[in-house]
Design a protein around this nucleic acid. Structure first.
Lengths: 129, 129
DNA sequence: TAACTGTACTATAACACGTAGTACGGTTTG
DNA sequence: CAAACCGTACTACGTGTTATAGTACAGTTA
């Protein structure tokens, strides 16, 4: 499914959360799709089930998963997401800070524009959804 | 100078690092300007001198500070910065991830464009430096 | 009933963070 | 030179987080 970097400073459960978020955002995982059980994924990644459980609980509280007792955890539909305004503001701030630092480090504007294009943000004549 | 949020999950020394980086990037602190001594800033922020020292060491290793023994720490000039390619790649990745999540959360494109304009990235007819 | 699933605990070890205190070398000023 | 700054290095301690280990219990499916 994905890999964990044990040498990373980032906590394992956070790496699990980030990996799932990315797969959901990019559409690799579809709404209502079942994700591996806590024990199964723990076995596959050779880490403790409790660590996976913590990640899943986090993903559920952020609206990316929903869980059914006895059945498993599933990918939530985008419309099921709760209030995003706080998270959006966080991301905007992240964006500002990263852009400012990139400019300070004299990263060519063209390289930044390239990234913007890749996110479907800059394409003209396109409407979302 | 700035404030520290003791209740934040972010480590104090990281908050100090981020605050200085922001002040340097935004031009509030000029090259070769002297920053408060370790003991002085620790006193002002009511935290331990060792925590400030850790932040200053970090800032020096990243090329934002240079230190002169017996004199103090100073803001480094942008040209003094060492190899940035690794950091630039990190920032590009941060950018991509944040943009993708913003799109997923259905943040209006206009709000994102607003941020881009604020970073002097999107202004036409302007040349850097 | 058996074999899955999620969930909730407790306990332990390892590590990072922040604090406290001490020490030493360099620079400036009187 | 001596005092008062400066940066820097080091040890030690308390605390919180992370990850692990083990156990237990409820819901679902075959």
């Amino acid at each position: 499914m994905f890999r964990i970097d044990l040498k990373s400073r980032k906590a394992i459960y956070e790496q699990v959360v980030d990996n799932f978020k990315e797969m959901i955002i990019s559409g690799i995982l579809k709404p209502d799709e079942k994700v591996p059980s806590v024990r199964e994924l723990a076995k596959e990644l050779t880490i403790n089930p409790n660590t996976i459980q913590k990640a899943y609980r986090e993903l559920e509280s952020r609206g990316y998963f929903y869980s059914v007792s006895g059945l498993g955890n599933f990918v939530a539909a985008p419309s099921d997401k709760q209030d995003n305004s706080a998270r959006i503001n966080e991301l905007k701030d992240t964006l500002k800070t990263a852009l400012n630092e990139l400019m300070y480090l004299e990263c060519p504007k063209e390289e930044i524009m390239e990234i913007l294009k890749d996110t479907a943000l800059m394409r003209e004549g396109e409407t979302e959804r």
